[in-house]
């Protein structure tokens, strides 16, 4: 079995993995990083979105072996010293989650969006989130949260 090294939320791991092991199963089942959930089989829902070397990817559609040598950030790695990331705070303040199952992926996708567009308008936010499905909120509050999170990220990122 291939041996891979991967850094997840700042911690280095070395694992032997089956080639077919999905990155999301490496995170959840092997490493116990269950903050990242799985919502579909077809890259549609985006619940499993993580940052891989700084860019958003759907961890259900990346093999663990493809992530060899890379740095992964999940929703569990966003807070620093117990201080929420501005995007996490914005989701809380704007009531941008209900059941919360899509939230890890949604927050990661939002942070990725702000990486490339620090001051997105509503249309840009909606485009940036088209790969992340939410069944609870109707997206209005998510759009508001991303706008707010983007503003706060401009000021202050942990």
């Amino acid at each position: 079995m291939p041996r891979i090294t991967v850094t997840v939320d700042g911690v280095g791991y070395e694992e032997e993995v089956e080639p077919r092991l999905l990155l999301v199963h490496l995170l959840r089942d092997t490493l116990g990083k269950t903050g990242t959930p799985i919502g579909c089989d077809t890259t549609n829902c985006g619940a499993c979105t993580v940052l891989m070397d700084g860019k958003s990817v759907k961890s259900c559609s990346v093999l663990a072996v493809q992530a060899d040598g890379s740095e992964i950030t999940t929703v569990e790695g966003l807070s620093a010293n117990g201080v929420w990331h501005p995007m996490q705070r914005a989701f809380h303040e704007e009531h941008a989650l209900q059941c919360g199952f899509c939230t890890p992926g949604m927050i990661i996708a939002a942070i990725d969006l702000v990486r490339t567009d620090p001051d997105p308008d509503d249309a840009t936010i909606r485009e940036g989130l088209e790969g992340n499905l939410c069944r609870c909120t109707g997206y209005c509050n998510i759009v508001r949260a991303v706008r707010r999170g983007a503003q706060e990220m401009g000021v202050n990122t942990p």
Partner: peptide, 25 residues
């Protein structure tokens, strides 16, 4: 295997059964 964004869903749904994947990454 290129980016895998079409291939991996096909593999997960078991609509394809390759014996070997050659990763071009």
């Amino acid at each position: 295997l290129a980016g895998g964004q079409s291939l991996l869903p096909l593999l997960r749904l078991r609509l394809a059964y390759p014996t070997v994947l050659i990763d071009l990454g």
